[in-house]
Amino acid sequence: MKILTAYKAGLVGTISRLRLVTIVYLFVFIPSLLVAMAYLSAYNKAIGLYLAPEKLMHGFDYTTYTELMRFEGDGISAIVKQAFWLVVFYVPVSLFVTGGILYLITGKYKPRLASFVNGGAKYFWRILKLKFYFSFVQLFFAFIIYLPFGISIAMADDGSLNEKMVFFKLLPYLIVHLLVVIYLFTIVNYAKIIIVSKDTRKVLRSIWEAVKFVTGKFAGAYSLTLLLMIVPLLLIYVYFKVFGFLSMDSGWVVFGMFVIQQLFLWLRAAMRIWFLAGLAEYYRMRR
């Protein structure tokens, strides 16, 4: 039942840190909005005084879309490339954000921007080192898991294999890999919690502690991870089911979708904090 206690504590902790949720949300929203505004400008410029793009408002016209991109899409493509580099930039920034969240959660600090930035900066290199090690661990496990599959495919007669057989041969490996990935994901998250809660620079030692913790309390630790993933997955499912395919065919609907999407993304930020807060609480209770 400790997992339920941790689960609830994570939720309560998140609700009591709505400012932190907003900081995390804004950390993504503001730079993304800047790129999106450039995108809007490029799109407006591309549309110019053309009449045809009206067809893109009410449904989707493949010809118009393709020709718009082909003849006037250079500016739009440039912005999309910028967006790609923004995503690349956010790979390390995401580690910074995780450090900031954990610092506020485990230290029970008030969710202020300054504290968040302090925490992010303080643990950035340690979490980066942790991710670096775990990238190799992930690759190693993927190699071990898929090696027998690769051998079985390579040894099979080309003519006797078909895509359905390959898929069903691959499926058990995918399932095993998914379970292993969740296990490793659980370990890496506890390792981060250990690094921040103990304020230690010994990353490898933290990993080892996390391995012992997760393996020693496997059922609880693994179940809690799965439990904490249910609501985010449900949220994503509900969003796409209800709003994902809503046709934006008027200015008001576009605005409405913008509001709904941002609410959804804000909730996703909250889920991330809930997740870490839940694990941190479980670690505090069971260590």
């Binding site: 993504v28 993304s32 407006n44 200015g251 576009v254 999407q261 930020a269």
Partner: peptide
Amino acid sequence: PERNVARKYMVRFLFVLQSIIQTLFF
């Protein structure tokens, strides 16, 4: 010209970009 077309695609673009970055966070 129908300016809402650009807004529509901008809203979609923004959402996709934020979603990718938030997935990185996770």
